[in-house]
Design a protein around this nucleic acid. Structure first.
Lengths: 214, 214
DNA sequence: TAGATTGTTAATCGATTAACAATC
DNA sequence: TAGATTGTTAATCGATTAACAATC
């Protein structure tokens, strides 16, 4: 039902488009051109048209794109037409913050189960999400047919927990630990390394300064 | 003292290399080849050699790279030879988690000031970091000569706060809000959009499944 | 028809990688 | 010298973008 092979760079922009289309809908706009979109999402208009074109001829020449139908289309592409349940493993301070984070408000995603080995957390409810002991990980993930997990455990535990997640049938991991996980090739990993991001930012700032001093 | 123009993709990998070199140092390894490094950091060995070569001839043919001297070199490149102070604006649950996050352990970075408009937080200390009222933002940033800020305010406030940060002299922002900030071109922004990351992950999982069913 | 904007061709750019001469 | 591994050339790949014919 979707289409051929979508470039990775395009896939990463889809949520950006999707979000802005929702903004337009709420503002009661019915049409939008690639140029208008371009300004709002800071992506070149030709790139936007190219991105859209991977999915077919979604616009009308001389007119632009119909907000509602485009939104409806992307809703399907991004699996936003059904609720997706996600697990979170590691209820430390970052994990807790993410449990409290409102993914659900803007998307059809929710964290439906959290796991942590600390006995005092077992079988409690945090930010409306049940917290299970680590031992129940496989059972719950299978029962709830969870496909994706957010990994916020300490780095030393991350590979071990990953193996358990994979064994339980998870196909994607959003990895907040600095460890490069090894997973079978049918499992997706997206790394979010906060230290690296901050370090890179500092690097760019400093090299920018150096460049300006010329 | 550094060198010419480093490609963006290379710059983003520098912290990854840096971290692993520290691991090697702690493990008392004195030399490493691009092939060994490649396995650990999951980057092609030719890419690693190319990356390093932007900074000069850092290795010895037939031998590899000397861990200690490479580390020393990258320490300079990544400004890890001096302490860098960073501000955090928006002490919500994500902000609090980041204040508690141990950037400082693995790098020479620390959050030295946090800001929040909530009166009950003003002039308290959280996770060892002083929290100032929003009104003191410009004053503190200037006094502490802070160059980079972590932005964890609600999306609606983000542009306003960004303008204040820029006015106060900040040159880089790690933006956790979904808003695409507009900043002067001498200011760096790195976006970390958690909702997008999760949505993209789900997209990849689903399209992988679709591909496997063939 | 005149004006606007798409979808796509072709050019360009940036990043990755295979392969190997240089050399420790 | 023989073996190993770099640094770099050249090829390839993937992503971006200018430009414009197609067409609403």
């Amino acid at each position: 039902m979707p289409s051929r092979k979508i470039p990775r760079a395009t896939a990463k922009r889809l949520p950006v488009y999707y979000r802005y289309l929702n903004v337009l809908l709420n503002a009661n706009k019915h049409r939008v051109s690639s140029t208008e979109l371009s300004e709002a999402v800071q992506v070149d208009s030709a790139t936007i048209r190219r991105d859209f074109s991977y999915f077919g001829e979604l616009g009308k020449r001389g007119y632009g794109y119909d907000v509602e139908s485009l939104l409806k289309f992307f809703r399907g592409i991004l699996n936003q037409d059904k609720l997706t349940s996600v697990a979170l493993v590691g209820v430390g301070s970052l994990g807790s913050a993410l449990m409290n984070y409102n993914f659900h408000q803007s998307t059809n995603l929710r964290i439906s189960a959290a796991f942590d080995p600390k006995p005092e957390l077992a079988n409690t409810i945090k930010s409306g999400i049940p917290v299970y002991p680590a031992a129940e990980l496989e059972k719950q993930i299978k029962e709830q047919q969870i496909d994706a997990a957010i990994l916020t455990v300490p780095g030393e535990k991350s590979q071990e927990v990953t193996d358990q997640l994979v064994a339980a049938g998870v196909h994607g991991i959003l990895n907040f630990t600095p460890v490069r996980l090894s997973v079978p090739k049918n499992v997706q990993v997206q790394n979010i390394d906060l230290t690296n991001e901050l370090q890179t930012l500092i690097y760019f700032i400093e090299s920018n300064k150096a460049r300006e001093e010329e």
